[in-house]
């Protein structure tokens, strides 16, 4: 299953590290990532992939949401098909 993770918040040390660590612990492979500062906000997008025998969408989403709360950034996790459906014919 492919997922898109977006991370938005105030820039600080260790955001990329803590998100990628969390993903590694959940057996989610990062297959693409992009990071920028937009209007003063740290914005990162990752495409992750995992197999459902290793973890579940709910587990990954919940752990990332909790991580976001603990480090003070918004983390959204959505299934990737949504973006293809909207943006591609």
């Amino acid at each position: 299953m492919k997922i898109i993770i977006t991370v938005v918040g105030n820039d600080k040390v260790g955001i990329v590290a803590s998100v990628s660590k969390q993903l590694a612990e959940r057996n989610v492979n990062i297959i693409d990532m992009s990071q920028t500062l937009m209007h003063g906000s740290f914005t990162m997008m990752l495409m992750g992939e995992f197999t459902t025998d290793k973890t579940s969408f709910d587990t990954v989403q919940k752990s990332l949401t909790e991580l976001g709360q603990s480090i003070g950034v918004d983390i959204h996790t959505q299934r990737q098909e949504l973006f293809d459906a909207i943006q591609k014919i």
Binding site: I4, T6, D32, M33, S34, T36, T43, M45, M47, H76, L82, F83, I86, Q87
Partner: peptide, 13 residues
């Protein structure tokens, strides 16, 4: 990964 399109979609929602 089309970051612009992902941003557009998230903004729409």
């Amino acid at each position: 990964m089309e970051t612009r399109q992902i941003q557009d979609t998230i903004q729409m929602i």
